[in-house]
């Protein structure tokens, strides 16, 4: 039918729709579903394998402290402006939005810093920092390792008898994970400081801090550190996995970078949901037990 249409614009639309439906048919077919499931399992298995390999290689000498510090500089100091700017703006946005919500809900805006502090400690410190690190640091790691891979430098490493996991993944793992915990704390302070600036006419520093202090405490800080540790492995491992898998020149490098960032953010969201749900359940169970 498509061949008989004479109008060029209509014909282009029909041909493209035909292609789209062809792809959709392929996607819905059994083979397509099987391919999706196999790809998912392949990625998951590769990430878990790389995590286990990295943890095993972590204890094995020689320890490359110089590389670790170089990667910590890349993950920490170089991404400090991004973390500061984004988390600062987020802190101000949270204060403004909570002011709106609480004034409408409770007709009482004196509790805004308390709720904002809860959100900062429980979500913004660990999770948003992890997502920002995935965009900044993870993309950089994948691009670096991927371009090493496409120019056969990883094969050269293997030829010299150096394990690529030991030489490339372990320093990035140590540097990025340690720096992510520090960055979570720094991002938390950026949020609190910017939130104070946003709530300035209504609260002074003392009332802001004291109201926040009545809602959050050391347990929330320990929760933040544990969450940051639980999310910290995702960025280096996922980005190194996609870097090692990268094939096919400059196009392959770009493709691998995109996939690494998306997969890292999705894994971060899913792990964060799991930790949040389990932590809340545990708190409720402990309360009822006590």
């Amino acid at each position: 039918m498509t061949q008989r249409v004479k109008n060029p614009t209509l014909r282009v639309i029909l041909v493209t729709l035909d292609q789209v439906f062809y792809i959709a048919r392929m996607g819905i077919s059994v083979r397509g579903i099987g391919r999706v499931i196999l790809g998912f399992l392949d990625t998951l298995g590769g990430i878990v394998t790389l995590l286990v390999q990295t943890l095993l290689n972590l204890l094995r000498p020689p320890y490359r402290f110089r590389l670790m510090i170089a990667q910590a500089e890349v993950a920490g100091w170089k991404s400090l402006p991004l973390i500061g700017i984004t988390l600062g703006f987020l802190g101000m946005i949270v204060i403004l939005e909570l002011h709106f919500q609480l004034s409408r809900l409770l007709h009482n805006t004196s509790l805004v810093p308390g709720v904002a502090g809860l959100l900062f400690f429980r979500e913004f410190g660990p999770t948003v920092v992890a997502a920002m690190m995935a965009a900044k640091v993870g993309a950089g790691f994948t691009a670096e390792i991927g371009s090493m891979n496409t120019t056969d430098q990883i094969d050269a490493l293997k030829l010299m008898g150096v394990s690529p996991v030991h030489y490339l993944a372990v320093p990035r793992f140590v540097g990025c994970m340690s720096m992510q915990v520090c960055m979570s704390i720094i991002g938390l302070f950026c949020c609190i400081a910017a939130g104070y600036l946003a709530s300035l006419p209504e609260f002074n520093l003392q009332s802001y801090i004291s109201i926040m202090n009545s809602y959050v405490g050391w347990p929330d800080f320990i929760n933040l550190i544990l969450k940051a540790v639980g999310l910290g492995w995702v960025v280096p491992i996922v980005s190194c996995h996609y870097g090692f898998r990268c094939r096919g020149g400059a196009r392959g490098v770009g493709d691998a970078t995109t996939r690494a960032v998306v997969t890292a953010i999705l894994i971060i969201i899913v792990i964060d949901f799991t930790i949040t749900a389990i932590a809340d359940k545990l708190v409720v169970a402990a309360m009822s037990f006590l």
């Binding site: 703006f89 965009a135 900044k136 691009a143 970078t257 995109t258």
Partner: peptide, 28 residues
């Protein structure tokens, strides 16, 4: 080269994250 592609992707992600949060703050 291929390093330039990686750098461009990285800088695109950073710039768009900052742009999104800045615009969000202004609208809020």
């Amino acid at each position: 080269g291929s390093e330039g592609v990686g750098r461009a992707v990285n800088s695109c992600l950073v710039t768009s994250a900052i742009a999104i949060f800045l615009a969000d703050y202004i609208i809020a």
